[in-house]
Amino acid sequence: MTDTRTKTPRERYRTQVRAEIKEHAWEQIAAAGASALSLNAIAKRMGMSGPALYRYFAGRDELITELVRDAYRSLADTFRTVAGAGAGADLAGLAHALRAWALDDPQRYFLVFGTPVPGYHAPDDVTEIASETMAVILDACAALPSDRPAAPFDAHIEGHREWAAGHPAAPAVLRRALTVWTRLHGVLSLELAGHFTGMAFDPARLYAAELDDLLER
């Protein structure tokens, strides 16, 4: 990353304006969802013309890509910090870090793990960052002892492992990682969407119970 001290005044101004645009974009997403993101509305909020704002972001998809990239990079950095804090990745530590990251900014969480934005496709570099987070989960799952017998799904997943981005994990580890990923995100998505409201139990305890069950298995 370029040191801001070496940037010209024009480059620093451009960086500041792009950051302000992204702040307004998050406000729009919080109010109406990513599918309603409007660069023209952001330009109006900032006292700019539409064409002037398009000098900073070429279109809606470029702005969404920047937001998605920031979100995945934030999660990847969070996982890397957890994995680097001990002797390799620890699944329990990663799970608790994931929940803290999600609760810290639910809109950021839903942008990458919620309903896909219609018509939007993330570029390869964003997919690669997302793969970094799954690679850390795969490493953590591979480090766990397991005497689970082979399951029919193992043979299927062995032939459909593109999502693992070249990770050498055995089929049983791939299955475990997917199980962890789907169950933890299931609880988080329901909690952040407010579906546990009024059910009179602590979602944190449910999340912890799911994690305990995953570790025992």
Rank of each mutant, 00 (worst) to 15 (best):
L138N: 15
S131N: 09
V136E: 12
R148T: 07
E11T: 09
P9W: 02
R108K: 10
G194P: 03
H185K: 14
R161D: 12
N40L: 13
R55W: 06
Q107T: 10
T81G: 11
G47K: 03
D61W: 07
D147P: 00
T115E: 14
L174A: 02
S146Y: 12
E158S: 10
P51I: 09
T115M: 09
A208Y: 01
Q107L: 04
Y109F: 12
T127I: 02
P168E: 05
A208L: 02
N40K: 15
L91C: 05
D77F: 10
R161T: 03
H185C: 14
A100V: 02
L190G: 05
G86W: 04
L144F: 05
L63H: 10
E23P: 00
R183G: 07
A151P: 00
R55P: 05
A130P: 00
D61C: 06
A41C: 02
Y56I: 11
T179M: 15
A143D: 10
T8S: 13
A142V: 06
S146I: 09
S74A: 14
G93E: 13
T65I: 12
D212W: 08
L53K: 10
L144K: 04
D139Y: 01
D70C: 07
A165M: 08
D105F: 12
S38Q: 07
K7L: 14
T8M: 03
A193L: 05
E210V: 15
A172K: 12
L91K: 01
D125P: 04
E162A: 06
R18N: 08
M1H: 07
L211Y: 08
R183T: 03
T15C: 11
W26Y: 02
S146R: 13
A177P: 00
Y56C: 12
R99D: 11
R18H: 06
P123K: 02
T2Y: 03
Y72K: 15
L211E: 11
A83S: 15
A130F: 00
A208R: 09
